[in-house]
């Protein structure tokens, strides 16, 4: 996002916390709907994935057996909406036997720099995530 946001004052830091598995409850899907609508408001947006929420970003999701729509491809569109900061908590991955290799390749085009594709996913420790959260203005937890 542009530098103007620190000066602007009207731009807030929005953090969407994703803590639940993608299926089993509707929280993850409806959280993503908030993020996509919220992207139109030109705020400074971050997402965090922790607890079972890390499963939302796993690759090769196949929901045929449970009759639900696989909505994980929508995460790939986030970069186009200027949603480029996806914090994934390392401990949550480890506790579930996952590594970064199990996650989708999510990228964004860096319009402010060299227009190169850069990874949106940022692996952070629980302590690092704490610091990120402390820096937010609005936190919505799903």
């Amino acid at each position: 996002m542009s530098e103007g946001m620190e000066e602007g004052g009207s731009i807030k830091k929005f953090m969407y916390m994703n803590r639940k598995a993608p299926y089993g409850t509707i929280y993850a899907l409806e959280a993503l709907e908030v993020v996509l609508i919220g992207a139109a408001f030109d705020q400074d947006v971050s997402l965090a994935f922790l607890d079972d929420g890390v499963f939302q970003l796993t690759k090769d999701q196949d929901t045929k057996g449970i009759g639900m729509k696989n909505f994980s491809p929508a995460f790939k569109a986030l970069g186009d909406y200027d949603v480029t900061k996806l914090y994934v908590e390392k401990e949550s991955l480890e506790e579930r036997g996952l590594t970064a290799d199990d996650l989708m390749d999510l990228v964004y085009e860096d319009e402010d720099d060299d227009w190169a594709e850069k990874p949106s996913i940022r692996l952070v420790s629980r302590d690092e995530l704490k610091a990120v959260l402390a820096d937010q203005d609005v936190i919505m937890s799903f």
Partner: peptide, 16 residues
Amino acid sequence: LGQLIEAGIQADRLVT
């Protein structure tokens, strides 16, 4: 949902 985002922008505290 825009009403939710707007509440986040306008409120001093958004309580969930």
